[in-house]
């Protein structure tokens, strides 16, 4: 589990090319590395540093700032139960207790079989549908304890593998800009004039 694969390297280079400064691509690339292995390995960070031209310490500094990046393998399904106010008001703590009992691990832990990692999450932007949770960042809304049991059953049985990919895979659709359609990165070094359409005339 290490450096980016050749296939991902192609994607990485495409991502890097979109930005005026290479370092900007760091977070998307870290996601790519996490998609590849389910977590971000040391070698991956070294590789990303080489790709965007920064030291591995800088990659590490950026990566550890963000909560979604994991530096050690975790369960296939990351169950994030929101505990912020709206969800807490609607019983998120009880849901968490139930989940802890059901999975047999404390929040933050991973089940023995490596299937589930249970975690506290902060507000996930589904407050009116409290309590809510995310499995690998896919929403489940107004989750009762029974819903949670069903969800875990389904995940264990592999029924949801279509909808919910393994941890690390975020969006299943990637932006792709066809070379003939893209304008290309606009970097401060190369541009010092007003854009063409700002000439006081209509563009069409």
């Amino acid at each position: 589990m290490s450096r980016l694969t050749d296939k991902n390297l192609v994607i990485a280079k495409e991502i890097i090319a979109r930005y005026p400064r290479q370092k900007s691509a760091l977070i998307p690339l870290l996601h790519l590395a996490q998609e590849q292995s389910g977590y971000i390995s040391r070698e991956a960070m070294v590789h990303l540093g080489e790709l965007v031209g920064v030291t591995s310490a800088e990659v590490y500094g950026t990566a550890t700032f963000y909560e979604m990046f994991r530096f050690e393998p975790i369960g296939k399904y990351l169950v994030n139960i929101c505990g912020t106010m709206s969800c807490a008001l609607m019983g998120a703590h009880e849901l968490m207790h139930h989940a802890e009992k059901r999975l047999g691990v404390k929040a933050g832990g991973t089940t023995q079989d490596g299937m589930f990692t249970l975690a506290h999450a902060e507000c996930q932007a589904a407050c009116t549908e409290a309590p809510c949770l995310q499995v690998n960042y896919r929403y489940r809304l107004r989750v009762s304890t029974a819903d949670l049991d069903n969800l875990i059953d389904d995940l264990e049985a592999g029924k949801l593998s279509e909808e919910i990919p393994a941890h690390g895979v975020l969006a299943k659709v990637r932006q792709h800009i066809a070379p003939d359609r893209g304008v290309g990165a606009v970097s401060p070094e190369l541009v010092d004039q007003a854009p063409a359409w700002l000439n006081g005339k209509a563009a069409l």
């Binding site: 977070i27 996601h31 990046f69 975020l170 290309g184 990165a185």
Partner: peptide, 10 residues
């Protein structure tokens, strides 16, 4: 160009 960029939880 509109570049889709995404964060990582902060």
């Amino acid at each position: 160009d509109i570049i889709l960029h995404w964060g990582a939880g902060a």
